[in-house]
Design a protein around this nucleic acid. Structure first.
Lengths: 340, 340
DNA sequence: CTTAGCACTCTCGACCGGAGAGTGCTAAAA
DNA sequence: TTTTAGCACTCTCCGGTCGAGAGTGCTAAG
């Protein structure tokens, strides 16, 4: 990508903005008129032709206006987009919403998604924070019914994990409490790795419980509670009644497909700042017509979540980027306050 | 709705089935030919006319075949659909999938949704079970950092609830353990209602914790953990690029709108068997073009979840109904095994 | 380097007309 | 009384045509 003259940059910016606003190809006349340039349409046409040769614009057919390519969007976002903070009114509105939920940290992510979706009029995603390699804090065994025991594990940063298990041998609640107390002393402040390496000598029951603790600490968190799971919505869009475009169908299936999002989220976790994925950036074919504006949030590298916006490539980046950044910072603050 | 002659019923059944299969209006000739009836098309036309006058069929325009009305679908589902069990191959396939997840009860609902979606090629919904009015079993206070305490509450049926709280006064872990033990004795096997009515005399700290316990027991479960929340997907479908039909947009927004689904689920919870909502049944305008095939599952009235299928009104009820019934029974079995 | 002028291209919507599908009616047959 | 054959009629769907409109690319002059 060679350097672009100032005017050429301006033309690109205008085409991108105008296309984002209108949704249709933008012609040379529009560029001149809407932005009161002091040159003629013909001049703009020449510039646009050059931009097209650089791969930043295209036109859908001979006699339509220009449309940015994905590359054009990327150039725009990287070089031509002044990154301003979120509008103060939006800031206040969002802060207000977050003040209302308060301590219910389970609902932060959901609220973040709702706020993002509402403010951007796009799709929104948010995960809860994930705590990596947390240290053991406390455990408790509770007999639910004979032979069936519930392990409750409290880790640092207030993470609670639970696991139901049926024990081989019949035990009393007293025995369970005894084992719990013993392990509480032994394991205090250890990570799962440290426990694995160490593995102290214990009586059979203690051993069995210890194995369970290690399993449970190592296990990925899994979704819990009254969440409504949605699945297969994309199937419906294939029905002729819902004669949705190829695109709409694709969109929904991408968002339902956990593995792809998981990959992307992992890479987002490991970088700071808002990250923008336009049209899959060539790496993700399934995202061909989608853009993601994502950011990590949390506290250092150990407590992280991901949130952001999904929408068509033709998205108002000037609004969505500050929005995502702001919400991510806000969430980081909340997490800091209650976890760290 | 007056009684229908056997032949008229047969014609209705054929029209419904054929329309479900083909998606287009079905004409008198098709009815005769595909089902090898021993009458002429003209006779069928007369029958169809009567069915139309009864409000069970319509035609989209003068010279198209007939299409069932919502009322027609309802009649079909209630009177003309032989309720057969799910095909044994499907049964085996589904059982196989469920055997693999085993103890991870958090994942059952998700799996159920995935299975339903996959087997029906429609949208699927599933909630976790919800435990009503559960009895107190055990509690534990864990100091996360000075002034910040985590309450972990274990109820009967293995329900775990947690709540982070900042205490007014500084306390030691010992004091916390003492309060925990005291309350564990006092509250054993009580429901939230019983605790509220009783409310024993306690020292200030104990009182504060007791209030918190009551709050937490009474609180609705909220989604937890690494669940990816989705929101606002319907916004995207309003963009011209995803020029989805009115219907598709409606569909997605309905499924995102928690309150409507919540209402419906409540009514599903309180009835047995598979419940079918065709085109909103006149009660839900937002579901005009959608059908839901839902069922409760769980153990008696106290531990219940909801699962089912969403799709266009033109849905293959003969397949989806047995499928939903089967999965609901399977899930009930699992819940029984691990909760009751 | 910029611009006016102009021919050219392509889309889009409207309009038309014929083929096809299916109905409703009538009158005859069972 | 019920069923059926025959037939006119209606409506959609599809392809083709046409003109308006928008915008470009080129050329030649400023």
């Amino acid at each position: 990508m060679t350097e672009l003259s100032a005017r050429r940059q301006a033309v690109l910016a205008i085409v991108v903005q105008e296309h984002i606003a209108s949704g249709s190809p933008v012609g040379s006349k529009t560029v001149v008129e809407e932005y009161r340039l002091k040159v003629s349409p013909a001049t703009i046409r020449n510039e646009m032709k050059v931009l097209e040769e650089s791969g930043l614009l295209t036109h859908p057919h001979t006699s339509a206006g220009r449309v940015p390519t994905e590359e054009g969007y990327r150039y725009f976002v990287q070089h031509l987009l002044p990154d301003q903070p979120l509008a103060p009114t939006d800031q206040r509105m969002i802060q207000h919403l977050f003040h209302q939920v308060g301590h219910e940290k389970d609902q932060w992510a959901q609220l973040a998604a709702a706020v993002l979706a509402h403010s951007s009029q796009m799709g929104a995603l948010a995960t809860q924070v994930r705590v990596e390699s947390s240290r053991f804090k406390h455990m408790q065994l509770v007999e639910v019914r004979p032979g069936l025991v519930l392990l409750v594990l409290v880790l640092h940063a207030g993470v609670v994990k639970q696991q139901m298990v049926s024990l081989d041998l019949a035990v009393t609640q007293d025995e369970l409490s005894q084992v719990s107390n013993q392990l509480n002393d032994l394991l205090a402040n250890l990570t799962v790795g440290e426990i694995r390496d160490w593995m102290p000598e214990l009586p059979p029951l203690g051993q069995q419980v210890l194995d369970l603790v290690v399993d449970t600490m190592g296990r990925e968190d899994s979704p819990v509670s009254e969440q409504v799971y949605r699945d297969g919505l994309s199937h419906i869009l294939t029905q002729p009644e819902f004669a949705a475009t190829e695109d709409a169908h694709q969109l929904v299936s991408v968002l339902e497909q956990a593995s792809l999002l998981g990959n992307i989220f992992e890479s987002v976790r490991s970088n700071d700042g808002v990250q923008i994925l336009i049209g899959g950036d060539g790496r993700y074919d399934a995202l061909r017509d989608l853009s993601l504006v994502l950011s990590r949030y949390g506290v250092d590298r150990n407590i992280t979540g991901v949130l952001g916006i999904v929408g068509p490539v033709r998205m108002h980046y000037g609004r969505t980027i500050p929005l995502v950044r702001y919400v991510a910072e806000l969430m980081s603050g909340l997490v800091q306050e209650w976890y760290a």
